[in-house]
Design a protein around this nucleic acid. Structure first.
Length: 488
RNA sequence: GGCCCCGUGGUCAAGCGGUUAAGACAUCGCCCUUUCACGGCGGUAACAGGGGUUCGAGUCCCCUCGGGGUCACCA
């Protein structure tokens, strides 16, 4: 019984998008679930598309996601190198072996010639398929031309007839008519292999037992199996994963402004919340459980729960997960994570972050929303007097002015300016005056916050604001209401 | 267009021939409450359509429709 080896094999063409992250996650979970190895391989055979820095971005993102790999370019391993361009010399001999056995052949057709024929086929409304023109060149002549330095590629020689097939753990047995398959390029003119060839060679050489990848490879997988057969190798177990969609018709894509994993992290989504949410996109534990730590995912993961249809990425649900994860943080953890966001709005104001954190933790969905929620503590925002009017609290402009005039002297006497003292003094005064809480506390909160919604009630806000600021805001509100009522 | 794949509420998703077709997000209403949020309770909302097979079909088969993928010297 050979042990499981899975691999995540991204191209360094940019950030790690969420579909890629999910593929990586499932690949990782499968390996861990079965006590196997999770390997990272960089597929950079298309030098033109490579984006500088993207390789590092992949390392960073996988680490940030907590998907530690056992083998890879920057961690080593017995099957390296793990970057395909560094394996350049390993591919051609295998291709030549196929040429010898008749499963592949060199092709000297130029791009221009092919482009013309492709265009002509399109004009006739046909699907272009390479006509095996160069297959007719005698072996010796072909080899001579190759050695003479003439540019060439090596193509896979797909049988004219018959069925190519493979078995997928998720999709089952998939077949393709050989006659519909094209003789794809295996080795490009620059000597590097195409994905079509490299994935087969490397997966075999690296001992990969389970290939997990997106469904975009579903229709070309039969061709890859033809290659395994030609070499006499045992193909891996395939698991093709459905794509992650933005909506019913579009894939998630950076081009449309959809966030990458890194984007979500910098917006203030928690790593574990993202992973938890992503895991449930296209996979179900079979029951209605929703919360899983990474360890619990490993324990619960089962390919039987994989869904075959594409899943739409639902930001609202992610946000809900995030809010739940934030609530489960310890107060200390929350304070630490929230502090930089508090600083953006309140830096240097001397606000009691500890108390603010307590008030904010249950109200934080995503950290990037925090600054706007607390900014009023630093600066009194502009607001409409209509905010004072609240039917349920029995509050009007007149009653508000009255309540504020009543509260000002009460608050001026509060010592020390602590929350319990504030609370007790205010509540006692309200009770002794025979007033109701609502008509007093509603306008008070509006007067010192200028907002309909705040983290905490009037007492908490007054405490956070401090004595001088609170009293100043109340006095300003009294003036403002007095003026407004006179005009009216 | 050819070939391949997919199709349960707006979204995720359970269901694997017999269920009043779960649950979650979102949404709506009520309660709690010095605001908002949290929390509690409740509501609206789905088997794409049509044929079969079967005593019985969301579950099996076929067709239609819808969606996706793929047809590169990209992966």
């Amino acid at each position: 019984m050979t042990s499981v080896r899975t691999r995540f094999a991204p191209s360094p063409t940019g950030y790690l998008h969420l579909g890629g992250l999910r593929t990586a996650l499932f690949t990782y979970l499968y390996a861990r679930k079965h006590g196997g190895k999770f390997i990272l391989r960089i597929e950079d055979t298309d030098q033109e598309r490579e984006v500088p820095g993207a390789v590092q971005l992949i390392y960073d993102s996988l680490r940030a996601a907590g998907l530690e790999y056992d083998e890879g370019p920057d961690v080593g391993g017995d099957y390296g190198p793990y970057i395909q361009t560094q394996r350049k010399d390993t591919y051609l001999p295998y291709a030549m072996q196929l040429v010898e056995s008749g499963h592949a052949y060199p092709c000297f057709c130029t791009r221009e010639e092919l482009e013309e024929r492709r265009a002509a086929a399109a004009a006739r409304g046909e699907t272009f398929k390479y006509d095996k023109h160069c297959l007719g060149i005698p072996r010796q002549e072909a080899l001579r031309r190759m050695q003479s330095g003439e540019p060439y590629v090596i193509r896979q020689n797909i049988p004219a007839e018959g069925i190519a097939s493979f078995d997928d753990l998720l999709f089952g047995h998939i077949e393709a008519e050989c006659s519909t398959l094209d003789d794809n390029v295996l080795i490009k003119q620059d000597g590097l292999p195409t994905y079509n060839f490299a994935n087969v060679i490397d997966d075999h050489l690296m001992g990969i037992t389970h290939v997990t990848r997106g469904t975009e490879y579903l229709s070309s997988a039969p061709k890859y199996n033809l290659l395994y057969e030609a070499f006499g190798w045992t193909p891996p177990v395939y698991i093709h994963l459905p794509v992650v969609m933005k909506d019913a018709t579009r894939k998630l894509s950076k081009r449309y402004g959809d966030p990458s994993f890194e984007d979500l992290l910098s917006m203030g989504y928690l790593r574990d919340a993202i992973i938890n949410f992503i895991a449930l996109l296209g996979w179900s534990p079979g029951n209605d459980r929703e919360f899983f730590s990474k360890e619990e995912l490993i324990e619960a993961f089962d390919e039987k729960g994989l869904n075959k249809s594409p899943a739409i990425f639902n930001m609202d649900k992610l946000t809900w997960f995030n809010a739940e994860y934030i609530r489960r943080l310890s107060p200390e953890e929350y304070l630490e994570l929230a502090t930089p966001w508090f600083d953006r709005a309140l830096g240097g104001r001397g606000i009691d972050y500890c108390r603010l954190a307590e008030l904010m933790q249950g109200r934080t969905e995503v950290f990037n929303r925090v600054p706007d929620m607390v900014r009023f503590l630093a600066e009194m925002p502009g607001y409409e007097n209509e905010l004072y009017v609240n039917k349920k609290q029995k509050s009007t402009l007149e009653s508000s002015l009255d309540a504020l005039k009543f509260m000002l002297p009460v608050l001026e006497e509060v010592k020390p300016w602590q929350e319990t003292a504030l609370h007790d003094t205010v509540m006692q005064a309200i009770a002794e005056a025979g007033r109701k809480n609502g008509p007093v506390l509603w306008p008070l909160r509006i007067a010192i916050s200028g907002q309909a919604s705040t983290p905490g009630g009037a007492i908490e806000i007054a405490y956070l604001l401090g004595r001088e600021e609170t009293l100043a805001r109340i006095r300003a509100a009294i003036e403002r209401l007095t003026a407004a009522l006179q005009t009216a």
